[in-house]
Design a protein around this nucleic acid. Structure first.
Length: 555
RNA sequence: GCGCCUGUAGCUCAGAUGGAUAGAGCAACGGACUUCUAAUCCGUAGGUCAGGGGUUCGAAUCCCUUCAGGCGUACCA
């Protein structure tokens, strides 16, 4: 509908110019918005004010010229008015709304989908937690955001791949190996002093126990280096498969798990370094190899190969991102914890230095999660091994509630996740509020079938024009806004917009439900209302599925 | 010190690209279940959009500045 209004305005501008009412034919992009105040109409535009300078006319005068040349062949406009400093307000004829329902029904599962992506390949890399311990709630937030952003982009016509980058090389993995090996030697009856910088969690003992069970004391016969390496490899593999299982429970499946170690094994790190050196993007200083990131906006150059010959984490990341773009992704989106924000400038600089336009690389910084229980903070420290895992949270509060909570805040806002609140079935926890709409509508259909008034979802020749109640028009208006909500969500990479849309749609539905009956004495009216609520159910289910939340028929 | 993020009702949070009178939930108070699910609805009350300056027809939104909280500032990952 908004699009239709925009077209009407565009046509009026051209006609007004041709008729001499507007001197310049230079028109700005037309902004059509939905005013907060009902008295200002269904839509309004500020074009007249924006054009004042170009046209060298008073805004209200321009507005008059536009209104005089409005054509409305479809008869959607009830009336228009000029208001305030030069707004043009449009009031839509109530009868113009019900036909919108046909669009919802025709598109079905695809309602709200768009072609904005044009099939371009996009990669979303998220979670990518080191395989040194189980996932915690913070990872869960990143997982929910990354997964949903990817879903929404795919829905908007991008060819999306979800990827998990495994940091299976480097010091943390060696530390993991050392931690497990030490616990293992403990099991052999030795007393060891367990260093503070090793991983303290109980899961380390479990991993050591499993190795002890399989291999007995065999590892003792190997060199310590080999034994530690074995422990590291094996522990990382097992932790990773635990992570994969936890993500599966959380409703997330990756298209690809990408190993950092493979970059070394296949010579991609060396390859990237050699290439960048040839192009004079890397230079030597003080025995180290540096990247000229300052040429691309970073505050200082960064080391890629240290004086001792070891590559930095940055080196792997350069090789990794080079590989990503080499795979033909038009756009690459990384989802990181906000504590890595200091890394964004250098990574962006590196990408740009490799000849890739800056807009093609984006980082979503997901802010931290404070885990609470009934208002009190729950201690969280990976190293000390005191933390609540994502799995425990999902087991306790449920996948739907957990995902929804992560997605009802902007990712740049710190999040308090209260376990007790998350279990409550109140409106402080709106996932149930939204799901309840779906259940209620399903229940209406169940009742209708039971009474024999309808058969399944099959509504023969409904007449939407019978939907004249203000609550019905309000619902239809809301449904018509869904595609735009999804597009905005995709354009801004902000999944919470879909969640908020669903909550507001739910509010309108519950109000309608409480005031009017769907199954009435009049067959025509019943069919029309079923047609409406079925459209609502489709959109609720559609939106929830983007968020990775289930749409239950019963609650 | 410098950089990034955050600051909106008692609490938790929305308010993209600057628009007209600032929004929701929770909590508080008062109402609505013989009905298609009350996990719901209706109403009342609640504000110096952290403070100050600026830009303009118009600022929660853009710019400058102060304050508060978080994070980051390695030849760590």
């Amino acid at each position: 509908m908004k699009q239709r209004v925009r077209e009407i305005i565009e046509a009026a501008l051209v006609r007004a110019h041709e008729a001499g009412a507007l001197p310049s034919r230079e028109f700005p992009p037309i902004l059509v918005e939905e005013p907060r105040v009902e008295a200002h109409g269904d839509f309004s535009t500020n074009v007249a004010m924006v054009m004042a300078k170009i046209q060298k006319m008073a805004p209200r005068k321009i507005a008059e010229g536009i209104i005089d040349h409005l054509a409305d062949p479809g008869g959607v406009l009830l009336r228009t008015e000029i208001a305030g400093p030069g707004f043009i307000n449009f009031f839509i004829a109530p009868a113009a709304w019900p036909p919108v329902l046909e669009e919802v029904h025709e598109a079905g599962d695809r309602y709200g989908a768009s072609a904005m992506g044009g099939g371009r390949k996009v990669q979303v890399e998220f979670v990518s937690a080191n395989p040194t311990g189980p996932l915690h709630v913070g990872h869960g937030r990143g997982a929910a955001v990354g997964d949903t952003v990817a879903n929404i982009l795919a829905f908007c016509g991008f060819d999306v791949r979800k990827e998990y980058y495994i940091n299976d090389s480097g010091r943390q993995i060696r530390t993991l190996g050392r931690s497990v090996f030490l616990r293992y030697t403990e099991l052999l009856g030795r007393t060891v002093s367990f260093p503070e910088d090793c991983y303290q969690g109980d899961y380390i003992r479990e991993l050591a126990g499993a190795i002890h069970e399989d291999r007995g004391d065999e590892l003792e016969k190997e060199t310590e280096e080999a034994a530690v390496a074995y422990c590291a490899r094996r522990a990382a593999r097992e932790i990773l498969s635990g992570i994969e299982a936890d993500l599966e429970v959380f409703g997330i499946r990756f298209d690809r798990w990408f190993s950092e170690q493979s970059l070394f094994d296949e010579g991609r790190v060396d390859g990237a370094i050699a290439d960048l050196k040839d192009r004079d993007i890397l230079y030597e200083k003080d025995g180290a190899l540096w990247f000229r990131t300052t040429d691309h906006g970073d505050e200082k150059d960064r080391v890629v190969v240290r004086g001792n010959g070891q590559t930095t984490y940055f080196a792997s990341d350069i090789a990794y991102h080079r590989d990503k773009f080499g795979r033909g992704f038009h756009r690459v989106i990384d989802v990181w914890g906000a504590d890595h924000h200091g890394y964004v400038a250098r990574m962006s600089a590196a990408v740009e230095a490799m000849g890739i336009e800056r807009e093609r690389f984006g980082v979503i910084l997901v802010h931290l999660v404070n885990l609470l229980r009934a208002g009190r903070p729950v201690a969280m420290s990976t190293r000390a091994g005191e933390f609540v895992t994502l799995r425990e949270v999902v087991d306790e509060v449920g996948r739907d509630a957990a995902r929804f909570i992560f997605l009802t805040r902007h990712y740049e806002s710190p999040l308090d996740f209260d376990l007790e609140l998350a279990k409550q079935k109140t409106n402080d926890n709106p996932v149930y509020y939204v799901q309840y709409v779906h259940a209620r509508i399903s229940s209406i259909f169940a009742k209708g079938e039971e009474e024999g008034t309808i058969a399944g979802d099959d509504l023969t020749s409904p007449n939407p024009d019978l939907l004249t109640e203000p609550e019905e028009i309000a619902l239809i208006k809301a449904l018509s806004r869904y595609p735009e909500a999804v597009e905005n969500s995709a354009a801004l990479l902000e999944p919470h917009r879909v969640a908020y849309f669903l909550m507001s749609l739910a509010t309108l539905f519950h109000a309608y439900y409480n005031k009017h009956r769907v199954l009435t004495e009049t067959a025509d009216l019943t069919r029309a209302r079923l047609y409406l609520v079925l459209a609502v159910r489709k959109v609720i289910r559609n939106g929830l599925s983007l968020l990775g939340v289930s749409a239950p028929d019963k609650m």
